[in-house]
Design a protein around this nucleic acid. Structure first.
Length: 540
RNA sequence: GCCCCGGUAGCUCAGCUGGAUAGAGCAACGGAUUUCUAAUCCGUAGGUCACAGGUUCAAAUCCUGUCCGGGGUACCA
């Protein structure tokens, strides 16, 4: 039944019968018509091996007997393509299949494989910014993509509540506290200055009074708790929940970090110099060695990260995905290298890197600096925009491209806003289906072979591609690709809708066939949108 | 200096595991509205795919170099 495998079988048959050994061909969908639905480059690729012109090879293939003539016919075209013309009947069957399988169409059965997706992983030193937002949305959608493809997915948030940054945070919070009660305590150098700390300081005064000393644990613990609960609320409001929160501190407590150090030392992959412990990365193909433990005795981020990843590998996941910002581009290879040194498996670790986000407001780019509290928080976006819009805008660009978040466009509730294009297609269908049931009450047998118009076949063809598309999306872990596909589906539907009347009491059979096509379209849109975590309203 | 990402229509970007005439949205212009929801559709116009070499039957796509933009390059995370 799978179209691609039939086409591949056809070519394979030809090769086998002519005793040709060859594997390196592909079959791709044609977006423009004129050359059939799919084409293969097999003849072009065989030119050298067979020492014949590509077009004559293509003609020979095309004239070979075709056991799948119910599904496709063939043609050859210059300079040597083998074209597959798919029978409408195939697409009719696909529409039928979509309608039978509904929300399971294109969905993979459980693989019995586990996947772990780590994302956000931001230390509780301040509110989430739009930069984290991109990562949060990306990670959530990647998780959904894996679930859809049969993985058991756990979403993990890794953070450090014990490091230097947290100490600075506590000092900054004390400074705010002291300032609130009239003491002249300066904000620490490189400290945090955001307004959110004022709120927290006030809460501390409320709850614990004005007599706390600067070294009171409350400043650290209370602040962390407050900020972390805000982070969770923010994530919650855009529909993101984590299964596991892992603290960096636990790897100190359970000795994992000491073990890493010991093992590297035993393998002579680390050494001491200037009071610090160095990772001998230069002997592993890197340009220079990296510090694992500072001369102060504190580890760099590298060491716990290695221990943490070793732990993830040991937990036995079949797939480990790390979603990182562009600032990790240079650093994650060190972690992978560390794992290899510990003889850990690493080829099942996939790293998704995304570029940074800027906010565009009134046509101008808002420059952001985290420490100076000159940033746009995710909450601010949340206050102004629906989670659908936020989700959609964060994947409007591929992860590897810089993202200008156009606030004015996002707020625009007109047709200029591309997110509505998808939702509108679904709303149109919903309304039409309701209307159909009101206007046509006669029972009619379903006969999809009445779908012959170009717009109908083009739409059905696109819908049939959904499972292939999801496989592609799985390979690259790139939600944008799915969004692009859904835009194509919506466009094909709007076009069909504009050119053809679905409800026609004069032609009940055709009405029914078209209704079925609409239902299939709705299924695809809803399946796709659910993976993106975007709602599919019935009315707009 | 080194590393990563980007440079495609006036603007924002798809396309990039090489394939046949490079796509979409916005903006511009012209049409469709007694509508199955016009948040839509149809049409016109708009391109040396940054530049230069190379590989190939075939390059926006791969390789090398150059230019421009963004980011990274800590005993910060």
């Amino acid at each position: 039944m799978k179209l691609k495998s039939l086409m591949n079988d056809f070519i394979q048959n030809y090769l086998d019968e002519n005793a040709i050994k060859f594997e390196d061909w592909n079959i791709s969908m044609n977006s423009q018509d004129g050359f059939g639905d799919y084409s293969s480059n097999v003849a072009l690729k065989l030119t050298k091996q067979l020492k014949q012109s590509p077009i004559s090879i293509a003609e020979s293939i095309v004239n070979h007997s075709n056991p799948f003539s119910d599904t496709f016919t063939l043609s050859a075209s210059h300079p040597g393509f083998v074209n597959f013309h798919i029978a409408d009947n195939h697409y009719h069957q696909m529409v039928n299949k979509i309608n039978e399988e509904k929300e399971n169409f294109g969905k993979k059965k459980k693989l019995n494989k586990s996947a772990n997706v780590e994302f956000v992983s931001c230390n509780p030193t301040g509110p989430l910014t739009v930069g984290h937002g991109r990562q949060a949305i990306l990670g959530d959608m990647v998780s959904n993509i894996l679930t859809w493809n049969g993985y058991d997915v756990s979403r993990e948030y890794y953070y450090n509540d014990a490091g230097k940054q947290m100490r600075v945070l506590a000092e900054s919070c004390y400074a705010k506290y002291a300032q609130q009660i009239g003491l002249k305590v300066p904000t620490p150098e490189n400290g945090y200055v955001g307004n959110y700390l004022d709120d927290i300081a006030l809460k501390i005064i409320d709850k614990y009074g004005k007599n706390l000393k600067s070294d009171n644990k409350i400043f650290r613990d209370f602040t962390e708790k407050e900020i972390f609960s805000n982070i969770k609320n923010t994530l919650d409001s855009i529909g993101i929940k984590f299964d596991i929160f892992t603290k960096e501190g636990s790897f100190y407590e359970n000795g994992a970090i000491d073990n890493v150090l010991k093992e590297l030392k035993d393998k002579e992959l680390s050494y001491e110099k200037d009071g610090a412990v160095w990772f001998k990365t230069s002997s592993l193909g890197k340009e220079e060695d990296k510090v694992l433990v500072k001369s102060s005795g504190e580890p760099t981020y590298r060491l716990p990260d290695i221990a943490y990843h070793a732990d993830k590998v040991d937990r036995g996941f079949d797939l480990i995905v790390d979603i990182f910002g562009a600032d990790h581009i240079d650093t994650y290879p060190d972690v992978i290298l560390g794992l290899k040194c510990l003889d850990k498996k690493t080829d099942h670790i996939k790293v998704v890197i995304h570029q940074f986000v800027t906010i565009k407001k009134s046509g101008e780019i808002v420059k952001m600096s985290t420490r100076k509290a000159n940033f746009v928080t995710l909450d601010e976006l949340n206050d102004q925009l629906s989670s659908d819009i936020i989700r959609y805008f964060f994947i409007m660009r591929g992860a590897n491209s810089h993202l200008d978040f156009d606030l004015d466009l996002a707020k625009d509730e007109s047709e200029k806003n591309p997110v509505y294009y998808l939702q509108y297609a679904n709303a149109r269908i919903s309304n039409l289906l309701k209307r159909y049931d009101k206007e046509i009450t006669e029972k009619v047998k379903i006969n999809l072979s009445l779908l012959k118009e170009k717009d109908e076949i083009a739409l059905a063809k696109l819908l049939s591609e959904f499972p292939n598309k999801m496989e592609e999306v799985l390979k690259v872990l790139e939600p944008r690709k799915l969004a692009t596909y859904l835009e194509e589906v919506a466009a094909a539907y709007h076009k069909f809708y504009g050119n053809h009347k679905v409800i026609d009491p004069q032609n009940l059979d055709l009405s029914m066939a078209r209704k079925k096509l609409c239902e299939a379209t709705k299924t695809i849109l809803m399946n796709g949108l659910s993976i993106l975590g975007i709602s599919a309203p019935e009315r707009m």
